[in-house]
Design a protein around this nucleic acid. Structure first.
Length: 604
DNA sequence: CATAGTACGTA
DNA sequence: CGTACGTACTATGA
């Protein structure tokens, strides 16, 4: 048995590394004497869905704040068995982003997630309930290393951050390749691995105590853990892709990109993605560029903007070619190649669903299916994603969720009445200001976002006077909204926080009090969707849910029962807040997700 | 290799 | 007083 040691702010952590089968007895003994342990795995990569193509667990680590164990799973059955036994025997597990480890354990050690998830505490969820801000927002952050730095030991965090990079350098490889290559008993690697359960355990002890009392009382800790488990099941199921379709689009976009790059080159632009080159090229042509980007630290006056808006305004063949080539390249890589490259041996792709991510608590989806950013106008991208054989795609989305949520909590009589009577809210706003519906709609959303006349002017392309008039009309039409926003802003100013209706505490940046209303709405609306996901799971919809997209859920339903199941999903999802129903609507397409967007009656 | 900055897709 | 994300890319400094 190899022993290493480390100190967290002076208090020692003993790391025991099992080297041979004979060492396992002592590990088993330690496990039998403990009810709860920090847990982590080191794997060959992040692609847990590829256990049939080389993905494996290399180390599994257990421990508490002062003593940890590193088990070299890679050495064979005896070690795997010991880890399995430990996982089953412990009453509680504590892990940071435990979803990943549970996927890995399920794929490689064959313990179903369903067995371990109910007894796993995830420190990333607790950290978010304490403070959802990332480091860039001057918060503690949510990554393990960031939390260690903020709550436990700054020096240790720097070492943790640097260690895998340093090891990679020593092996003359890159950070993403080192995980599979590093020697199993490399001491630096073992130290890095051995400390993980200790960090998680200590963070758990610390964070649990400081989750706001109100959040605890409302049951948010358990709620978030159950939700994370359901979204983990969606990740596991994955999404079947139409490989032929995606490959066809890739080829088409490649050709498109090449064609327009040639045109750009004929005007002397080597790289259409280089703003510098474009500015030079246009200035050489005598084009006057005026639009500048936002001032920033290194560019106090901003830089010359080269976005599609500027380029299309130039009405020049080179600008046109740049727009088209940039777009073709980005779309191919972001939507189609990502899906193709991320697919498993059964042509399924597995998104990374972070069930509690944004500072308002909204979920995020990243990885092979960045679904929350799929172009929504038509099925161009979404045709890549297929319901199961014999199934069809159904989507159920909440109608006007955020505005209804605002109406319900602000109690503004006009806005409430509009929703209760099924009147057209955007038209009401438009009529009050004497503008077209589109501008009325913009004003409504702008309010949800906390915007003012300047933003409306920019977005709606109207003059200042009109923009001011529209917002004034909004305020006069819905006085309750203004009063509600003001009271939230004042509370934020006084306390630094806005509390959502579900008992979540969201920090508001000093001086940005106007954001409080948006945080209340966005955070509260997210919880309406979260509630729907949990209720659907309880009703047996786990295998049919594919992805959550803020106010919409995507399903794969057996074709024959699709209508009935969609109706049931709608019934489960729609939910009254403060007495006002947030209705949900279902759309049923054919096999591809894209087909839903091409239904004749589709709202999309 | 990491960070800042630009741009663009969504709710 | 325009919210919240993820991804691709360039430029720059180490």
């Amino acid at each position: 048995m190899l022993r290493l040691s480390y100190k967290i702010k002076g208090s020692p952590v003993d790391i025991r590394v099992v080297e041979a089968e004979a060492d396992l007895r002592a590990f088993e003994d330690w496990i039998s004497r403990h009810q709860i342990a920090g847990f982590d795995t080191e794997t060959t990569g992040l692609n847990w869905w590829d256990s049939d193509r080389g993905f494996r667990i290399r180390l599994a680590q257990f421990g508490n704040g002062s003593e940890t164990w590193v088990i070299p799973v890679e050495l064979g059955h005896a070690f795997e068995d010991a880890v399995r036994t430990a996982l089953r025997r412990l009453r509680w597990l504590v892990a940071h982003n435990g979803t990943f480890d549970l996927h890995a354990v399920e794929a490689c050690l064959h313990i179903p997630m369903e067995e371990l998830a109910p007894k796993t505490w995830d420190t990333s969820l607790l950290a978010h309930l304490v403070d959802p801000r990332g480091v860039k927002e001057f918060g503690p952050g949510l990554k393990l290393e960031e939390l260690v730095r903020f709550y436990l030991d700054q020096k240790a965090a720097d070492e943790v951050k640097g260690s895998m990079t340093a090891i990679a350098k020593r092996y003359k490889t890159t950070k993403d390749k080192i995980w599979a290559l590093v020697d199993l008993f490399d001491e630096e690697y073992l130290l890095y691995a051995g400390m993980d359960p200790a960090w998680a355990y200590r963070l758990f002890q610390l964070l649990y105590k400081i989750v706001p009392w109100r959040s605890k009382e409302r049951g948010l800790i358990g709620w978030e853990h159950r939700l994370a488990h359901v979204t983990a099941k969606m990740e596991r199921t994955g999404y079947l892709i139409d490989v032929g379709y995606a490959e066809m689009r890739c080829a088409e976009l490649s050709a498109e990109q090449e064609k327009w790059e040639t045109v750009a080159k004929s005007f002397g632009v080597e790289n259409p993605n280089s703003g510098q080159q474009l500015v030079e090229a246009f200035e050489a042509l005598g084009v006057k560029l005026t639009k500048r980007t936002k001032p920033s630290k290194n560019h106090p006056n901003g830089q010359l903007a080269m976005d599609d808006d500027v380029l299309s305004g130039l009405n020049h063949p080179m600008a046109d070619a740049v727009i088209k080539s940039r777009k073709a390249g980005k779309w191919r890589k972001t939507w189609f190649e990502r899906a193709l490259n991320g697919r498993d041996s059964e042509d399924r792709v597995h998104a990374s669903i972070n069930s509690l991510q944004a500072r308002t608590s909204r979920m995020s989806i990243s990885g092979s299916i960045p679904a929350q950013t799929f172009p929504s106008g038509d099925g161009y991208v979404r045709h890549t994603f297929l319901a199961e054989e014999g199934h069809v795609t159904a989507t159920v989305d909440f109608a006007n969720m955020e505005l209804r949520y605002l109406a319900a909590f602000s109690r503004d009589p006009t806005m409430l009445r509009a929703f209760l009577n099924g009147e057209d809210l955007h038209q009401i706003t438009a009529d009050a200001a004497g503008v077209i519906r589109k501008v009325g709609k913009m004003a409504n959303f702008l309010t949800v976002f906390g915007g003012g006349w300047a933003a409306l002017m920019e977005q709606a392309n109207v003059d200042e006077e009109t923009a001011r008039r529209v917002l004034q009309a909004f305020n006069e039409t819905y006085p309750g909204v203004g009063a509600f926003g003001k009271s939230l802003a004042e509370e934020a100013k006084r306390t630094g926080y806005v509390w959502t209706a579900t008992g979540r505490r969201l920090p508001v940046d000093p001086g940005k009090w106007f954001r409080a209303l948006n945080y209340f709405i966005q955070g509260g609306s997210r919880d309406v969707t979260a509630r729907a996901i949990l209720k659907l799971s309880e009703a047996g919809f786990d295998d049919f849910m594919r992805l959550p997209i803020h106010d919409e859920l995507i399903f794969s339903f057996p074709e024959k029962e699709a209508c009935e199941m969609a109706r049931e999903a709608v019934r489960i999802m729609q939910f009254p807040v403060q007495g006002l129903l947030i209705p949900a609507d279902a759309e049923i397409g054919r096999r591809s997700w894209g087909s839903v967007l091409e239904l004749e009656e589709s709202k999309h």
